[in-house]
Design a protein around this nucleic acid. Structure first.
Lengths: 127, 127
DNA sequence: TTGACACGTAAGCATTCGCTTACGTATTAT
DNA sequence: ATAATACGTAAGCGAATGCTTACGTGTCAA
């Protein structure tokens, strides 16, 4: 048995997951704002109906996800978008683009039935 | 005090949020599989190292998010992707595409400073 | 130096999440 | 009819989430 590691369980560790980070609407708004340029924390927090520490915590999640970087400027901390990290999201969802651009919902039904026929003929040979 | 309504709080209600739904890696894998055609629940659950009810629960979340539809076929339930619901994700993230396609990270810095100068000149007029 | 800012972090708390096991229901096979 | 299959759902549980208030640190202003 290993001594220190594998204590009980890592459980989940949603550390640097970009998909998880953008799952929260507040964090998406923050990214949207940062898309228009660098911002200090107070500027970011102002439009929100929640405390400033709450925003700081959201910013930390965005930082650990690599979606923003921070730069100290006097007593302010300026956050900047690091949009390249969003590319994995773009790449993932772009796979599905064809489904709605080519009106594939109907065609998809046809493909579905074909695939199902194949699987049926493998499983058994009904009737 | 109102009697039945506004009991304590709606709290959050992450009901039909597509961004939240795709935040979980299991659900993303499910969508990926469904992208290749309609599937019954057991087929979907097989590759996963978790119980079948767990998959059912994920499928319910995908259903309430409108990302999949269900069709009864005998004693099976066939799930089908509804990719159009992913369009909002695509649209959102596509806004950021320019940041990495045009190598805008450096240009962004320039824009950031301009924006900040503007805001400074509004706030006060430093020094 | 003393105080006012601009933040981050810690602690606490209610809620949500993701999973398990147990069970109920509808359909197919024997 | 009886059993097996294919599911959904409920209950329970530990962990994670999102927020709050309280507090600590570094920077600027008076």
């Amino acid at each position: 048995m290993p001594a220190t590691t594998t204590a009980s369980r890592p459980a989940f560790r949603a550390g640097a997951d970009v998909f998880h980070a953008i799952g929260d609407p507040t964090r998406r708004r923050l990214l949207d704002t940062l898309g228009r340029g660098e911002r200090a924390v107070n500027e970011l927090a102002r439009p929100f109906a929640m405390s400033r520490p709450a925003i700081s915590q959201h910013l930390r999640i965005l930082r650990t996800a690599g979606l923003v970087t921070m730069r100290r400027a006097g007593r302010e901390r300026h956050y900047r978008l690091r949009a390249a990290r969003l590319r994995q999201v773009y790449d993932w969802v772009a796979h599905y683009e064809k489904f709605w651009t080519t009106g594939l919902n109907r065609l998809g039904e046809y493909l579905d039935r074909e695939a199902q026929k194949d699987r049926q003929s493998i499983h058994k040979l009904k009737k």
